[in-house]
Design a protein around this nucleic acid. Structure first.
Lengths: 187, 187
DNA sequence: GACGGTTTTTGACGGATGTCAAAAGAAACT
DNA sequence: AGTTTCTTTTGACATCCGTCAAAAACCGTC
């Protein structure tokens, strides 16, 4: 819990009343490896904060699983599209390791924003950071060869390679597992 | 100007005082085809609203120009990373057609948010939409063949194909102009 | 309607990578 | 240690696509 509040305070100052309001409406959950946090077709009603563990977001395309993001300690995670629009999720969120999560429902979050106006700014700043990360990932995806994309990842996010199985990483890079294996062998 | 205010009102209710404050700090500019709005290396200090016209954001990678987004009427545009962090832009923004833009500086925007608290929420909602669009683009980029990515674009954003030269569209799809030309010929 | 410049198309070729299938290696369980 | 199961590697082959170069189509201007 302290982790979550400390993380939020990085974005913007937090008053005591806001802290207390947040504490009152988030709840802790523990999940085992390979558990599904969200399954395609469900509406994702919660925003999660990952205190301990590791997970991935993936969807199905052309008969394959495409892992498009990984989450680690201190990350906010949700099926963003479903959470913001209320439509069924097109993606799945699955635990890669046993994990500890804090969660808040969309309704509770909106109520929180209504009652503690200062938090609007905090959320806005969190979105900015979120957006920059997505943009960076997108740019990296433009590198032509598998080897280049792999080296980018190795440099920028080595923790992904250490904690996620090869197949997930391969689809994250947009290549087959076999190709990733070969590329890795050469380096 | 009415277009801009009407567009903002789509996100969230706008009070009269907020409207007036906005009017007071945005300015209109007109640009000719092929003008550069932002050049790589500059800090992008403004957020723009595109009233009329069409432009693209691109950057250089491995000796090629990568167009990674297009902007059209009613879009907010900026070099997002530079604008939010104050660091030099890694991307260029260039007009594809002669265009009419409204702009506001980062300082003026932050002042506006401080003085009109209600606008924080509006900006937060605008970010949500922005983010969803980026995510969608990212997912489309995962289709395996050039033909599939082209057909996705044809379905979801035919206006891009109507208004942007082939070479820009090709790099947007992550393929060569020649391949795009062939794909298009087959369909 | 002829000219120059720009954009798009066509052709030939090689390389990177996906696919399928099987082998090898690790980890988990008894 | 032995068996099962999961993950990673290796091999062979087809194909999609990038590159380079040249031709064709398009467009505005004189």
């Amino acid at each position: 819990m302290q982790q979550l509040l400390a993380h939020l305070a990085n974005f913007h100052h937090l008053s005591t009343t806001a802290r207390e309001a947040i504490q009152a409406c988030v709840t802790e959950t523990v999940h085992a490896k390979n558990d599904m946090l969200i399954t395609q077709g469900q509406v994702c009603r919660n925003l999660y904060f990952l205190e301990k563990g590791c997970l991935r977001g993936y969807y199905h395309l052309e008969g394959k699983e495409i892992t498009h993001w990984f989450g680690f300690e201190q990350d906010f995670v949700t099926s963003f599209h479903s959470f913001t629009t209320g439509q069924p999720s097109v993606e799945n969120i699955q635990l890669i390791e046993g994990s500890v999560l804090w969660s808040i429902s969309r309704e509770a979050l909106l109520k929180l924003l209504d009652e503690h106006h200062e938090l609007e700014r905090l959320v806005r700043i969190a979105y900015e950071k979120y957006y920059l990360r997505l943009e960076e990932r997108y740019v990296n995806a433009q590198f032509r060869t598998a080897a280049e994309r792999y080296e980018q990842l190795l440099e920028q996010s080595p923790h992904i390679l250490e904690r996620a199985p090869l197949g997930y990483v391969a689809s994250y890079l947009g290549i087959s597992q076999e190709t990733l294996s070969r590329v890795r062998g050469r380096i």
